[in-house]
Design a protein around this nucleic acid. Structure first.
Length: 226
DNA sequence: CGCCAGGGCCTCA
DNA sequence: TGAGGCCATGGC
């Protein structure tokens, strides 16, 4: 078993299944984990969440999602009917609300013309990256969690954890990192979802900016290159 | 009070 | 292509 697969096993054993990405079930008022994605509105909510959580704590992004859900505007059509200023006010807790309101509009427009489940992965990625405000991580989050394509999401946490463990040079490009995971892991959507979610979990628990190495599950092998 | 959070765009070398 | 500034709220 290779190192990346082994690391997944350890994370999974320590933290258990994460059930990402959280979505709002029927009859509920806020996102829940462990919900099976069956509806288009779930996929749209995930994509919206991916924008809202850009460089932002999930708790803040969630407040914005709750507000959107309370106003019953979590569909592309209803987002597009809102004035940008009204939308910005609704998502205010997520921060960068003017930028994000613009980006949500762009995303909503995209969803009215595209069924992401019917798109081929590479083409869909290209289309997403062409949208203003959708970079590699946001695009891949939408691909993996909303479209359920087997694409590994690289984020700051992934780089931090594996850099500290001494796996890779600090300044690899996004594609370099992603290629490593794609080459070392089976192309499995469920695995990619859980792995990324577990990396986030582990970062919050131990591998913070100021790491808590004393109780870390990798303290025996990690190079601790802070 | 300062730091940080599930980035991305733009500018300027 | 990469470093730096900018966008902004809320929790700790």
């Amino acid at each position: 078993m290779n190192k990346l697969l082994q690391t997944f096993r350890i994370l999974h054993k320590a933290y258990g299944p994460q059930g990402w990405w959280p979505v709002t079930p029927e009859g509920e008022n806020k996102p829940h984990y462990g919900v099976k994605i069956t509806l288009q509105r779930h996929r749209f909510e995930i994509a919206i969440g991916a924008i809202l959580t850009q460089n932002t704590a999930w708790t803040n992004a969630e407040k914005a999602l709750i507000a959107l859900h309370a106003k019953n505007v979590l569909t592309p059509e209803k987002i597009l009917k809102l004035q940008k200023e009204k939308l910005a006010l609704l998502i205010r807790p997520a921060g960068y609300f003017n930028q994000k309101a613009e980006r949500l509009m762009t995303l909503a427009e995209f969803f009215t013309t595209t069924d992401i489940t019917q798109e081929e992965t590479t083409m869909l990625r290209t289309k997403l990256l062409a949208l203003q405000g959708v970079g590699p991580e946001t695009a891949d989050s939408i691909l993996l969690y909303a479209a359920e394509k087997p694409v590994f999401v690289i984020d700051a946490y992934t780089r931090r954890i594996f850099s500290r463990m001494g796996y890779l040079p600090e300044n690899g490009s996004y594609e370099t990192w992603q290629n490593l995971f794609h080459s070392m892991l089976p192309k499995d959507t469920i695995l990619f979802k859980e792995y990324h979610a577990l990396l986030v979990k582990h970062t919050k628990k131990a591998c913070r900016k100021r790491p808590v190495c004393e109780t870390c599950i990798f303290s025996d092998t990690c190079k601790k290159l802070v």
